[in-house]
Computed example of a mutant assay.
Amino acid sequence: MIVTPRCKLIKLASGDLDDVIQIYKDPLVRRYLGGTTDDELLLKNKFEEVLSKSKMPGVYFWCVRLIKDDQFIGFVSLDRYHDGKNIELSYELLPQHWGNGYATEVVRKMIDYSFTEIDLPKIVSETQIANASSCKLLERVGMKLENRLMRFGAEQAVYSIERT
């Protein structure tokens, strides 16, 4: 378990299915991530795929819960990036928890964890240019815009930060 001042990050487990499916079904969360689906089998298969992937070396998926009441608020991961050489930091929080600083708190902790605990030299995060809130968050935690590219039918911003 990884702890921030207000959140705890717990490794993804099979019992997290219902919580994680909230993320996959939420249209606001999925607005810049390919949309939602109500197909329960597809959702369960997607979760099982992520759970299986989380058991691979160098791949990490955590559920984010509030310390005060154990409420599920989102999902964060460190996973192989599309380029095959970098590790990507991704995060998705439920909309009712946006604007409270939880994402910034969790992302900062993940950057620190990446550099101090798993000794990564660099991490990247990719988000749609249209997702201004996510771009601002990545800049707020010290990540720099490294590249813009077209992927998934939209212009993407690739941010990065290197261990100092």
Rank of each mutant, 00 (worst) to 15 (best):
D16Q: 04
D16S: 06
D18K: 04
D18S: 11
D19I: 05
D19H: 09
Q22N: 03
I23H: 05
K25V: 00
K25L: 03
K25C: 00
K25Q: 09
D26R: 06
V29F: 04
R30V: 05
R30K: 14
L33R: 07
T36A: 08
D38F: 06
D39Q: 10
D39N: 14
D39H: 08
L41R: 13
L42D: 04
L42P: 02
L43S: 11
K44Q: 15
N45G: 08
N45L: 13
K46V: 11
E48C: 09
E48D: 08
E49F: 09
V50S: 09
V50R: 10
L51V: 06
L51T: 03
S54I: 03
K55C: 11
K55M: 12
M56N: 15
M56Y: 15
M56I: 13
M56S: 14
G58K: 10
G58I: 05
G58Y: 10
Y60P: 06
Y60Q: 11
F61E: 14
C63I: 13
C63K: 13
R65W: 02
L66V: 09
L66T: 14
I67T: 14
D69N: 11
D70F: 10
Q71N: 09
F72Q: 02
F75A: 07
F75K: 11
V76A: 10
S77V: 01
L78M: 13
R80H: 05
R80M: 04
Y81V: 08
H82Q: 15
H82Y: 10
K85T: 10
N86D: 15
I87C: 07
E88L: 13
L89G: 03
L89H: 10
S90K: 02
Y91E: 00
Y91M: 01
E92I: 03
L94F: 04
P95S: 05
P95W: 00
Q96C: 12
Q96Y: 10
H97E: 04
H97I: 01
H97C: 00
W98C: 03
G99V: 07
G99Q: 06
G99H: 02
G99S: 05
N100R: 14
A103W: 00
A103C: 07
A103K: 00
A103R: 01
T104M: 08
T104W: 05
E105I: 09
V106Q: 05
V106K: 05
V107T: 08
R108S: 13
R108K: 15
K109M: 09
M110G: 04
M110D: 01
I111E: 00
I111P: 01
I111Y: 03
D112R: 15
D112P: 12
D112V: 15
F115R: 14
T116K: 14
T116A: 11
E117L: 07
I118S: 09
I118M: 07
L120K: 06
L120A: 08
L120V: 04
P121Y: 10
K122W: 00
K122M: 04
I123L: 12
I123E: 02
V124G: 00
V124F: 01
S125T: 14
T127N: 06
T127V: 12
Q128C: 05
I129K: 12
A130K: 12
N131A: 15
A132H: 14
A132C: 15
